[in-house]
Design a protein around this nucleic acid. Structure first.
Length: 969
RNA sequence: GCUGAUGUGGCGAAAUUGGUAUACGCACAGCACUCAAAAUGCUGCGAGAAAUCAUGUGGGUUCGAGUCCCACCAUCAGCACCA
C-alpha cells in the first residue's frame, strides 16, 4: 500500500505557513543562534530547476536539526530579481520587467512551498523593492565617499547583443555570459569599485574562515598575488645610441626616456633580449613622430582592438607582433641595445602593460622569439640531484666533469638511439665525457662511434641549454657533479663500424620508438632533455636552479639571485620591489534599465556628486521603451525629465547618471537584510547585526566563488571599516554542492531536452520522496546525473517507513536486540548531516528499516526516534506518522535524539586474520581481547595452522579491534 | 597549455580516513502471496572450476594501499598569452 502523500504534504505545509512554525524568534537573549543561508535565486521564467532544491534541501536538513537541538534558527529566502532575462523579455513584449518578475517570484515561491522548506517567509526580500535597493544605493554612496568608487575610461568588454559593458568575469568563452553574443573591446566611461584595495585582506582573512579548500584555493588564485619588481628600461631613438666594440651601449646622444615593466622574475633580467608592449600602450602615441613604421603599428593596434580578451589569448594561437622601428631599449643590466615589439600577447590590464621578454625561460617569449628570430639566452641552469642509491655519499670521492648527451634520430623511422647497460640497469641516450680540447659536438660523434659504431650522421643542432647533475655514480663508485650539454643528430644511414669488445661488455645500442622513449629511459635528466627536444620548449621549470650568463648573479640559487638583483635595482634607482595582483577593479556600471539606479549627479561646475541620502531611494522611473541606445547608453538616458536635475552642491542644472548597477550589487549584502528585513531607518539594526552575524553556514554553487562570494566579502569588509558590522568576514563556513545533470549525464538545458521539472516529480512521487532522492543521488559536493529508477527506490523506502505501522508494538524503551543499532544510527546520522554526507545517512535509514522488517517488529520508542531522525529529510510523512502515534508535540517541537557512546560499541567484534596482508579467516572475539589471547586463538585455528605450516613467523601484528596480521617467510 | 576535480560491479555509489573492497539503492534472477499481473515480502547477485584475481595504467613506500608517493592515460570543469 502506498500512502496518500498529496493530502499529508498539503496539510503540513499549510500548517507550517499559517503558524509560522519556522520563523526565527525575535528575542536576542538566551537561545543560541544559528544562521543558515543558501544563495537566493534569480526568479527566471523557467521556474525552479531541480538543481536549486539540492542546496535548499541540504541546508533545510541542517536547519531543522539545529532547531531540534535548541537553536534559534534563521533560514531565510528571497529573490535576486534584477537581471537581464526580464529586461530582454520586456524589450520583446513591452511588458514592464516588474510584472514579469512578480509573476516569476510567485511561481518560485509556490514551488518552494510545495517542497516543504522550513524558510522563514516573514523575512522574504526582493532586491528590486525600492525599500531594499535604497540600502544598496546607500552602500554605493558610502563607497564613493571613501574614494572606493570612481569613474574611469578603460577598454571594457562590450556585449554586442546586450549593448552593455561586462566585467571580465562575466565573459564566458568569448561571449556574453547571459546572452551569448560576441564581446568586443570598447572604450567607455564606467563606475569602478576598488576591490583591489582589499586584495590582500581578501587573501589573508581566508585563514580565519571555514571554507572548503577548493574555494579558498580558487579565490587565492583569482586574486593572484605575485611578488616581483618594476624595472625601468631606458629607451631612445635608435640613431642616438652609440655602441662600443663589444656591442654594449657606450652613450646616448639624446634625451632618454623610461619604459616601466613588471616582472615576477627579476632574476632572469640578464636573459631579457627584447621587450614587448601591449598594443594600447601609451608609448606608441608618445613616440609617434620617432617611430619609423607607425602606420604598420597602428594597423596592428586596430586589428587587436577588434578582438576580445578571449580571442587574444586563444589556445594555440600563432603569435603575432610588429617590431617598433626607430626606437630601442637598453637592458639596464647587460647594457645591451634590445628591440621593442608590440604584441597582443601582452595585456594592457595587467602589470604595466609592458614586459621584458626572457625567451630562454618563458614559453610564450620563447615561441615569439623563435618565430621572429630573436636571440634566446639561458640564464638559469636546472640542477638535478640523485635520488635513492643515486644520492651523494659523503665518504666517496667527488669529481667534476663536462658531459654530452646525444639524441640520435633513426634515418628513416621515428625511432631514437638508446643504449642499454644491463649490468647497472641504466637505459640512456648515448652519452659520455667531454675531453680537454673537445667541443660538445666532437665528444658526441666520438661517443656515438665508440658506443654504437654509427658513423654516418648529420648535425641537427647543439642545444644552447645545459644542466647540472649531482649524484653518486655506482658503476664508478664516486660522486659526480656534471655539467651536461645536448647534441641532436640524425643518421644518414645505418652504416656501422665494429664496436670494441670492452664496450660490448658494458652496453649495447637499441632503437626505441618515439612514443616509448619516455618509459624506456631510466635517468630523469634524459627524460627531461627528451621532453625539451620533443616539445621544442624553453627551460621553464626554473623555480630553482643556478644562475649562469648573469654577471654578478652567476652561481647563485634562484631565490638568492632574486633578492640580490632587487637590491641592485633599488640601489641603482632602476626600479623597485612590487607586489601585483591579477584581480582587477570591479566595473560597476551597466547600461541597462532593470537595475538599481546609480545615485550620482553630474554638474558642469562641481563634477560628480552623490544625491543627498535623504532622497534615497532613487526610484527607477517608469519608462515605455526598454531598448538600450545604439552606442550602448542606458534606456534611462532617453528619460530627459528624470535625467535633468539640480546639483546637490550648487543647485544649478545638472544631470543624473543613467547607468544602473550590476546584478551583483543587490546580492552583495542581502544576508544582512534578512537579519532585519523591514527596517526603514538603516540596512539592519545594530542589535540584529550583532546577534545574527556572521552567517554560520553558507552553501552555494562553485561558480559563484570568484564573483558573488568575493564581491560580498569585499562589501562586508568595507561595511566593517565604516562601522556598520562588527566582524571582518560575513560567512563563517562555506560549502558547495555539485550540479545535477540530465539523465544522459549532460548539463540540463532546454536545447538538449533533458530538463527535469521538479513540479512533475512532486506530483508523481511527493515532496518527501523528491527531497530524499536529491540527497541520496550521490556525494553532495559532486555532480550527479538524474535517474528515474533511483527515485522509485526512494519512494519505495518511504512506503516501507509508512508501512512499519503494521509491525509497530508497544514499548517505551528500545528493545535489547535493537538498542545498539539505534544508538549507532543516531550517532552516524547526526554526524553525517554535519558533514553533508546525506547519501550515507539515508543508507543508514534503509539498513535500519531492513532490520525492523526482518525482525517483524519495531516498538514505539524505536519508531519515534527513527521518525525524529528522518524528519529533516522527509518532514511531512514523519510529522504525520508522529501524530498518528498519538504524540502531543510535533516533531519540529521535539528534541533531537541523543545517543550513549557506550551503547554504540559492540561487545563481540569480528577480527579478520591475515597472512602477509591477505585475509584468510575471520574470528569472533570479545572487544577487550588482548594480543596474547588473540594469538592463542589464531594459533589454534585449523585453517591458519595449515597455511603457516613449514614457514617461519617473522612478526605478528594486532591492531586493536581491527586486524590481526601474521607475517611469514 | 595551466589549475582543480574525478576514475571502484551491468548502473548510482560505500569504505570508520592506511586495516574484511563493493555498505545502501537501482537493474537483474529465483521464491512466496495472486486465477494472473502489479504492488508487497523474502533470497541471491564482481570475475573464476579452483588456487586466486579484481578499485583507470605502470612503478614505489608499508606487515598491510581504493586511500600515501612518483610517472602516465582518460573524462569533466574552470581559467588563461597574468610576465
Amino acid at each position: 500500500m502506498s500512502y496518500n502523500f498529496k493530502e499529508i504534504e498539503e496539510k503540513w505545509q499549510n500548517k507550517w505557513i499559517q503558524e509560522g512554525t519556522f520563523n526565527a524568534k525575535q528575542d536576542f537573549t538566551n537561545k543560541k543562534k544559528w544562521y543558515g543561508l543558501i544563495e537566493f535565486p534569480y526568479p527566471s521564467g523557467q521556474g525552479l530547476h531541480v538543481g536549486h532544491p539540492r542546496s535548499y534541501t541540504a541546508l533545510d536538513i541542517i536547519a531543522r536539526k539545529k532547531r531540534m537541538e535548541g537553536y534559534n534558527v534563521l533560514y531565510p529566502m528571497g529573490f535576486d530579481a534584477f537581471g537581464l532575462p526580464a529586461e530582454n523579455y520586456a524589450i520583446k513584449n513591452h511588458v514592464h520587467p516588474k510584472i514579469i518578475t512578480d509573476r516569476n517570484i510567485n511561481n518560485f515561491r509556490n514551488q518552494m512551498k510545495s517542497i516543504g522548506f522550513s524558510f522563514d517567509w516573514s523575512r522574504e526580500i526582493n532586491t528590486t523593492d525600492p525599500a531594499y535597493y535604497k540600502w544598496t544605493q546607500w552602500i554605493f554612496i558610502q563607497l564613493y565617499k571613501k574614494g572606493l568608487a570612481y569613474k574611469a575610461t578603460i577598454p571594457i568588454n562590450f556585449c554586442t547583443g546586450c549593448k552593455v559593458g561586462l566585467a571580465n568575469e562575466e565573459v564566458v568563452d568569448g561571449v556574453c555570459e547571459r546572452c551569448g553574443s560576441p564581446v568586443v573591446q570598447k572604450e567607455k566611461s564606467q563606475w569602478m569599485l576598488k576591490i583591489t584595495e582589499y586584495a590582500q585582506r581578501l587573501i589573508d582573512d581566508l585563514s580565519t574562515v571555514d571554507f572548503i579548500d577548493e574555494i579558498k584555493t580558487q579565490q587565492i588564485n583569482w586574486i593572484g598575488r605575485s611578488e616581483g619588481a618594476e624595472v625601468n628600461f631606458q629607451i631612445a631613438t635608435e640613431n642616438s645610441i652609440v655602441l662600443d666594440e663589444n656591442k654594449k651601449v657606450k652613450k646616448v646622444n639624446a634625451e632618454k626616456d623610461n619604459l616601466l615593466i613588471y616582472t615576477t622574475r627579476p632574476d632572469t633580467i640578464f636573459g631579457a633580449t627584447y621587450m614587448v608592449i601591449a598594443p594600447e600602450h601609451e608609448l606608441i602615441k608618445k613616440y609617434a613622430n620617432k617611430i619609423v613604421n607607425l602606420e604598420e603599428i597602428n594597423e596592428y593596434k586596430e586589428k587587436s582592438a577588434l578582438k576580445s580578451n578571449f580571442e587574444r589569448s586563444e589556445l594555440n594561437k600563432e603569435k603575432t607582433g610588429i617590431e617598433i622601428k626607430g626606437i630601442k631599449a637598453i637592458n639596464p643590466l647587460t647594457n645591451e641595445m634590445i628591440p621593442i615589439w608590440v604584441s597582443d600577447y601582452v595585456l594592457i590590464t595587467y602589470g604595466t602593460g609592458a614586459i621584458m621578454a626572457v625567451p630562454g625561460h618563458d614559453n610564450r617569449d620563447f615561441e615569439f622569439a623563435k618565430k621572429f628570430h630573436l636571440p634566446i639566452k639561458q640564464v638559469i641552469m636546472p640542477v638535478f640531484h640523485g635520488k635513492g642509491d643515486g644520492s651523494i655519499k659523503p665518504d666517496k670521492e667527488n669529481t667534476k666533469r663536462e658531459i654530452v648527451n646525444v639524441i640520435v634520430k633513426h634515418p628513416t623511422e621515428n625511432k631514437f638511439l638508446c643504449v642499454n647497460n644491463d649490468k647497472f640497469g641504466f637505459k640512456t641516450f648515448v652519452m659520455g665525457g667531454i675531453e680537454k680540447n673537445e667541443t660538445p659536438f666532437d665528444a658526441a660523434i666520438r661517443e656515438l662511434k665508440e658506443e654504437t659504431g654509427y658513423i654516418d650522421y648529420k648535425l641537427n643542432y647543439i642545444s644552447d641549454f645545459k644542466y647540472e647533475s649531482i649524484f653518486y655514480a655506482k658503476h664508478k663508485d664516486i660522486n659526480r657533479d656534471i655539467i651536461c650539454y645536448t647534441v641532436v643528430l640524425t643518421l644518414n644511414s645505418l652504416k656501422q663500424e665494429t664496436v670494441s669488445e670492452e664496450e660490448k661488455n658494458i652496453q649495447y645500442p637499441v632503437w626505441i620508438e618515439a612514443d616509448k622513449i619516455f618509459d624506456y629511459l631510466t635517468i630523469d635528466e634524459h627524460k627531461y632533455i627528451y621532453e625539451l627536444y620533443r616539445n621544442n620548449s624553453a627551460i621553464t621549470n626554473t623555480e630553482s636552479g643556478i644562475l649562469i650568463n648573469s654577471d654578478f648573479l652567476n652561481n647563485l640559487e634562484v631565490s638568492e639571485a632574486k633578492n640580490k638583483v632587487i637590491e641592485y635595482i633599488e640601489n641603482n634607482k632602476l626600479g623597485k620591489k612590487k607586489i601585483n595582483y591579477k584581480l582587477r577593479d570591479w566595473v560597476f556600471s551597466r547600461q541597462r534599465y532593470w537595475g538599481e539606479p546609480i545615485p550620482m549627479v553630474y554638474c558642469e561646475d562641481c563634477g560628480w556628486n552623490p544625491i543627498p541620502e535623504s532622497e534615497l531611494p532613487l526610484v527607477l522611473p517608469e519608462i515605455e521603451y526598454y531598448e538600450p541606445g545604439e552606442n550602448g547608453e542606458s534606456p534611462l538616458a532617453k528619460q530627459t525629465d528624470w535625467v535633468k536635475t539640480k546639483c546637490p552642491c550648487c543647485s544649478k542644472d545638472a544631470v543624473r547618471e543613467t547607468d544602473t548597477m550590476p546584478q551583483w550589487a543587490g546580492s552583495s549584502w542581502y544576508f544582512l537584510r534578512f537579519m532585519d528585513p523591514h527596517n526603514s531607518e538603516c540596512l539592519a539594526s545594530k542589535e540584529a547585526i550583532e546577534y545574527w552575524s556572521p552567517v554560520d553556514w553558507y552553501n552555494g554553487g562553485m561558480e559563484h566563488t570568484t564573483l558573488h562570494l568575493l564581491y560580498s566579502r569585499f562589501w562586508y569588509k568595507f561595511l566593517y571599516d565604516i562601522g556598520i558590522v562588527s566582524n571582518e568576514e560575513p560567512y563563517k563556513k562555506r560549502t558547495s554542492h555539485g550540479m545535477i545533470l540530465g539523465t544522459n549525464g549532460e548539463k540540463m538545458s532546454k536545447s538538449k531536452g533533458n530538463v527535469v521539472n521538479p513540479d512533475d516529480i512532486i506530483k508523481e512521487f511527493g515532496a518527501d520522496t523528491f527531497r530524499v532522492y536529491e540527497m541520496f543521488i550521490g556525494p553532495f559536493d559532486q555532480v550527479a546525473p538524474w535517474s528515474m529508477e533511483t527515485i522509485r527506490g526512494c519512494s519505495k523506502f518511504l512506503n516501507r517507513v509508512w508501512n512499519m505501522q503494521e509491525i509497530l508494538i508497544d514499548g517505551e524503551n528500545y528493545l535489547p536486540e535493537h538498542e545498539k543499532m539505534i544508538h549507532k544510527a543516531i550517532k552516524k546520522i547526526s554526524l553525517d548531516i554535519e558533514e553533508m554526507k546525506f547519501n550515507t545517512a539515508i543508507a543508514e535509514f534503509m539498513k535500519m528499516t531492513n532490520e525492523f522488517y526482518k525482525d517483524k517488529k519495531i516498538n514505539r520508542a524505536e519508531y519515534k526516534t527513527f521518525l525524529q531522525l528522518l524528519n529533516p529529510f522527509a518532514p511531512h510523512i514523519t510529522e504525520e506518522l508522529f501524530t498518528k502515534m498519538g504524540e502531543k508535540k510535533t516533531i519540529s517541537e521535539s528534541e533531537w535524539p541523543r545517543y550513549d557512546e557506550t551503547k554504540t560499541i559492540d561487545d563481540e567484534i569480528k577480527i579478520p586474520v591475515q597472512i602477509n596482508g591477505k585475509v584468510k579467516t575471520i574470528i569472533n572475539v570479545s572487544k577487550d581481547i588482548t594480543q596474547e589471547e588473540i594469538k592463542n586463538i589464531v594459533n589454534n585455528n585449523e585453517n591458519i595452522k595449515k597455511l603457516i605450516e613449514g614457514k617461519t613467523i617473522v612478526k605478528e601484528i594486532y591492531v586493536y579491534g581491527k586486524i590481526y596480521n601474521i607475517v611469514v617467510k
